[in-house]
Design a protein around this nucleic acid. Structure first.
Lengths: 331, 331
DNA sequence: CCTCTTTTTGCATAGCTATGCATTGCTGAT
DNA sequence: ATCAGCAATGCATAGCTATGCAAAAAGAGG
């Protein structure tokens, strides 16, 4: 509209409204002292000019930026899509903006962290299932509150909120045993996934504690195709398993489909299957997958509290939220 | 670490390195004139202090903020999760930050738009399946480039990138007719979804052009549960349909499950089903759903080009990208 | 060694808002 | 009429970096 495409600033509005720049600022500062007539004049002038208050100078003065960075490894897994959705809703309700950064093997966390730090975000929510040894340090380098979701980490100003993966793994073992399984197997996600390792360890320990042989293992990279191939690999072993516990639901659903359609096994009578995360599809009629529901809503609430809490002095907390076993038709 | 938790600034680094603030700034400005020795001293001092360049003053000086706002209605639909994932990857590759805002019936677009404008985002990517009459104006009020994804809109500096919904709807009609359907029905998404209306119109027109009766209709709000109930409602009609075209895949999958498990119909012999979006689950063995794949990658590329193009003078463009029919086992 | 060119450096300032402080104007009480 | 008290207003400045310009240093050539 204008010649130089410059946005109008508070001085422009002030001039037009015949007041000082301070009056404009105060009009947009809740609780500041402005008369009704001044306020009306300012708002009228602002509307005519299309003025939008600029948040950046305030941030430079030391105010909080009200921006939270979210570092995520991808949204292909409906579990993370739901986490993101929940987080977006909560942050919005708390008046925070969400700056989303996708990290993958190409874009390292360090590069992303540098970018985000330039914008003076107030905190970082990390939802990285797969971590490298230096991830903790890269997050700590932010120097601002960091919450790691579902990856237990702690350090100065680095908190984490996870579910109790080991206990859930043990519960899976006990359920399978109670349902008559004698040779359970585990389908791993990708390497370097701390949550997955906890699930496996809890599962394997409990299996052995029940007097069963150590579980067979296959690896499947957290997706449907990985679950299919892992199931195929496991079932062609010399002594194939009669129960599968997968590190997440996508793996479990892929395995379930492979069992039924490729390997011609009945579930649960020939082979039982348990997943993790309780994504929407787990409840679909075709699957009726037994799974562990994480309390996403509660976990995100905790994470947001940690991010927005003023005290930065707190040593990193490592919160645990229990997972809930949902037994359906695959066990 | 420090007393006042203030982040070090370029002056702090300059003092420590024994150079001027300008030298620090130039060290971080690609192509600026700094000697190697100065650069080394600056980087060393910066590392000691944990200095992170501050992007905000530059933005205030009129530089681009390199922030793109993304307005989205939710991530429960894997289609939008994938759009978001693709967009995040592309924007990251282009050196842009992504500011995510979730809009729902509680949080109106106007409120969100005000918030985002305060941060001086460079552009807005809108992925709102459901729009209100004033959405176009709310987006145009940004005064910055706006791209509406999959919702045809245009206005000053408001572009859109959509697939050719009407043509796809017609193709669905022709496929069903070719496969022997005589009484097709349509499962609507929510009201006020422009893309959905185009799909329906193209479908219904083609149905009639083929000499078939106007399609039965049911409404299902774009999710799995809606598809289930819509299918149940349609199949209990006095003359139930023998083919269903759903406005998206979640609806189609819900309908497919209801047909098989609740209504005891064989697919495709009793009833054919077509979805839209070709989400991952459509290809899963349990479903093998015929669907229309949108070229998400190409569409996002176009959208990013529009957002990052310098010329703001262009009248809003309304790009169309063809959808690709993927026939599987439900037709 | 001197001059000219090129590179490097520093100075000073723009960009926009929030806010402490001082000032003005008004109300109401004495 | 006088003055205390309070609300409303304006002034001036901090906060941080990028950059035009001028000055200084370094290098090149004779």
């Amino acid at each position: 509209m204008n010649e130089s495409r410059r946005m109008p600033n508070s001085t422009d509005v002030a001039r037009r409204a015949g007041v000082s720049q301070s009056a404009v600022s105060r009009t947009y500062s809740p609780g500041a002292s402005v008369s009704q007539s001044t306020r009306d004049a300012v708002l009228a002038a602002a509307a005519e000019l299309g003025y939008r208050p600029n948040a950046l100078p305030g941030i430079m003065q030391g105010k909080r930026s009200r921006m939270i960075a979210v570092v995520i490894g991808g949204m292909g897994n409906p579990f993370y899509a739901r986490v993101l959705d929940t987080l977006a809703t909560r942050l919005s309700a708390a008046g925070q903006q969400m700056v989303l950064a996708r990290v993958d093997s190409n874009h390292s966390l360090d590069a992303v962290a540098d970018d985000l730090a330039r914008y003076r975000v107030d905190g970082v929510f990390s939802a990285l299932a797969v971590t490298q040894p230096d991830t903790r340090d890269a997050l700590a380098a932010f120097g601002i509150p960091v919450v790691s979701f579902n990856t237990p980490l702690h350090g100065p100003s680095v908190h984490s909120v996870s579910c109790d993966n080991a206990a859930a793994g043990a519960a899976a073992a006990q359920l399978l045993h109670a349902r008559g399984a004698t040779r359970p197997a585990f389908i791993h996600g990708p390497e370097n996934s701390p949550a997955e390792i906890e699930r496996f360890t809890g599962f394997a320990d409990a299996i052995r504690a029940l007097g069963l042989p150590s579980p067979l293992e296959a690896r499947g990279n957290y997706d449907y195709a990985g679950g299919r191939s892992a199931a195929a690999a496991l079932m062609t072993a010399s002594t194939p398993p009669d129960a599968l516990f997968a590190a997440n639901d996508l793996l479990a659903l892929g395995a379930l489909e492979a069992l039924r359609h490729d390997l011609d096994r009945a579930v649960p009578s020939d082979v039982q299957v348990i997943g993790f995360d309780d994504i929407d599809m787990a409840a679909w009629q075709a699957f009726q997958l037994t799974s562990f529901a994480q309390d996403i809503s509660g976990m995100v609430d905790r994470a947001v509290e940690l991010l927005l809490s003023e005290q930065t002095t707190t040593e990193g907390q490592c919160l645990r939220v229990p997972a809930r076993l949902i037994e359906r038709a695959t066990t």
